[in-house]
Simulated assay, not measured.
Amino acid sequence: MLRFEGVDLHYGSFRALSGVTLHAEPGELVVLLGANGAGKTSIFMAASGIQRPSAGRIRLGEREIAGHRPAEIVAAGLVHCPEGRKLFPMMSVRKNLTLGAYVHRRDKAGIQRSLDEVFSLFPILEVKQHDPAGSLSGGQQQMVAIGRAMLGRPKVLLLDEPSLGLAPLVVKQVFEVIERINRQGTTVLLAEQNAYSALAIAHRAYVIERGRIALEGDRESLLNNEAVRAAYIGA
C-alpha cells in the first residue's frame, strides 16, 4: 500500500533521511519508533508531499507520489495527522473536522457519512461539535485531529505522535480508537515515542536512528529485543 525505496531527504545541507526503505501493506498497523530528531516526522513529510525527497521513490499502491502536491496525495488516499494537532482554535469542532474533507467538498452526503463515522469513534465530539476547538481538553483536541484526518477518507493514515502530552488514561482511549480504525480496514503508519503502547497494537515496527532504519521486525520480536526495551520501553 505504501512503500519507500531508498529515500533521502535534505533540509538544506542537513540530511534528515538516508536510504530509507520501508513498507506498510494493506490493512497493516506499522509503528515507527525513535527518539526526537531521529527522522520519523521527516518520513511523514516526504510521504505527504510537504517535503520533496532528494533521492528514492515513494509509492502509494501502484502510484508514484514523491514530489506530488499534498492535495493530490490526499486525493489519492494518503492522509497525514501531524504532531501537535494543528487545529484552528476559534473555529468549531465541526468546522475543524470538515476541513479535512476539502478534497471531497462537493460530496455533501459523503461528508455527512464521514462525520457520523467520526462521531461513532469519538462520541464526545458530537456533543461538542459546535464548541470552539480551543476550548476542548488536550485529549479531545487530539480526537478532533484524528477525526479531521478521517474526513479525508484515507486508505493510508499517518499519525505523528498522537499520544504527545496526554494523560495515560486518554492515551489508552486514543490507542483503542487507532486500533479500531485499523481493524476497519485503514492502513496505519504510526510514529510514537510511547513504544510499549504502540507495539501493543502494531503488526510490525521500524526503529529509526539518525535518519536510517536501524531495526525492523514484528511486534513480538521488538517487544522482546533487549536493546529496544532498554532504549524505548524502559525495561
Rank of each mutant, 00 (worst) to 15 (best):
S13E: 05
S13K: 14
S13H: 13
S13R: 08
F14T: 07
F14I: 13
R15V: 11
S18Y: 14
G19C: 09
G19W: 04
V20W: 06
T21Q: 05
T21W: 10
L22E: 06
L22W: 09
L22I: 15
A24L: 13
A24V: 12
E25T: 12
E25L: 14
P26Y: 03
G27D: 15
E28T: 04
L29S: 14
L29Y: 09
V30P: 12
V31Y: 08
L32W: 10
G34K: 00
G34A: 07
N36S: 10
N36L: 05
G39W: 00
T41E: 01
S42F: 01
M45R: 04
A46Q: 03
A47S: 10
P53H: 03
G56L: 10
R59H: 07
L60Y: 15
R63N: 05
P70K: 15
P70W: 11
A71F: 07
E72C: 12
V74H: 11
A75G: 05
A76S: 09
G77K: 02
L78H: 03
V79P: 14
H80M: 00
P82I: 00
P82F: 00
E83F: 00
E83A: 00
K86Y: 13
L87Q: 05
P89G: 10
P89M: 11
M90V: 05
M90S: 06
M91E: 06
M91W: 09
S92H: 07
N96G: 08
L97Y: 14
L97W: 10
L97G: 15
G100P: 12
A101Y: 06
Y102T: 02
H104W: 12
R105T: 08
R105Q: 07
R106T: 12
R106Q: 13
A109V: 11
A109N: 06
G110H: 04
G110L: 12
G110R: 09
